[in-house]
Write a protein that binds this DNA or RNA. Structure first.
Lengths: 158, 158
DNA sequence: GTAGGAAGTGGAGTGCGGTCTAGATCAAGC
DNA sequence: GCTTGATCTAGACCGCACTCCACTTCCTAC
């Protein structure tokens, strides 16, 4: 048996059965899904492969509209490889940019976490922190962990 | 003049004025924003610094609920650094995981793009591709670019 | 033949994170 | 005084990507 029910496909792809029907309605599949006499969907292995690609593209932030466009090109058959490539390239650039962005955020977060960790280490080494000690100073002011002199823009302070 | 109008803050942080008011309503700021006699908001430099942190946390996918929690801790003043640290650490782990995920997607995308690029290079080298040549073959079947034998799961084929 | 679970449909609802509208008010320049 | 443009509030609305609902229908096992 090389064909799968919607439930099996859901399990294999990580999409819900709801999502699978939704994807079909939204024309995100490359071909019509076969049906049994009783009207149940039977997915071929190729459908599952395509869905796995969809999952990765979605996971990396490709909007359904672009995915739909890509599916349409594939459905159309050979001859439009250049456009498919453009689509993928553009998406890859977005992913690269997103990774860059996240790494930048990561370094700020790591830096702030380090400030707190240091703070705590000192506080505890000094026999615990008195929460009332400087409560009168503006709690969000001064050279504290929350008003950073920030890690130098170009240094990845982790 | 060390205080800024909402428009100036919007420009500096990249948030819209709408978003700034929304953040305030949602209690994402560490303190109440000052107002002029006429009721206009006047942001201090510290507010802007905090907003810049918010932007980075949001950009890296921290939900507003967590941001709100973090803001509340900071607002509360010293004494809860351990919890702030836990919050940041947890978020950093999510960011790391997300970066990993994106890199995995990226490698699939790059691989697929390479298949198309190669396809095109050959096609054009061979004097252009005849779109009707194999149109009768199932366009989504066979060892084509769209039914990948996929890059080996553990190799980062880019 | 009947019970129970998986799957079918169309359409409404959800959660998130803003974004926009309407109509009033404020403030700077002429 | 008047215009212009930024800002104010409360609250409605939006886009995205599902997710759920309220049925009905199918199929397998007993």
């Amino acid at each position: 048996m090389t064909e799968l029910s919607i439930g099996e496909v859901a399990e294999r792809t990580g999409l819900s059965v709801h999502a699978l029907r939704f994807y079909e309605r939204e024309e995100l599949l490359v071909g019509p899904v076969r049906r049994t006499a009783g009207g149940r969907r039977r997915y071929a292995v190729l459908d599952v492969r395509w869905l796995e690609i969809c999952v990765k593209l979605r996971e990396s932030g490709m909007p359904l509209a672009d995915l739909r466009r890509f599916a349409a090109l594939v459905r159309q058959g050979p001859g439009n490889e250049a456009e498919r490539l453009r689509l993928l390239d553009a998406h890859q650039r977005r992913v690269d940019e997103r990774i860059r962005e996240l790494e930048e955020c990561r370094s700020l977060i790591a830096w702030k976490a380090a400030v707190y960790a240091d703070h705590l280490a000192r506080g505890e080494a000094a026999g615990l922190w008195d929460p009332t000690a400087d409560a009168s100073a503006d709690s969000s002011a001064g050279p504290s962990a929350d008003s950073p002199a920030a890690p130098a823009q170009s240094s990845s302070a982790s």
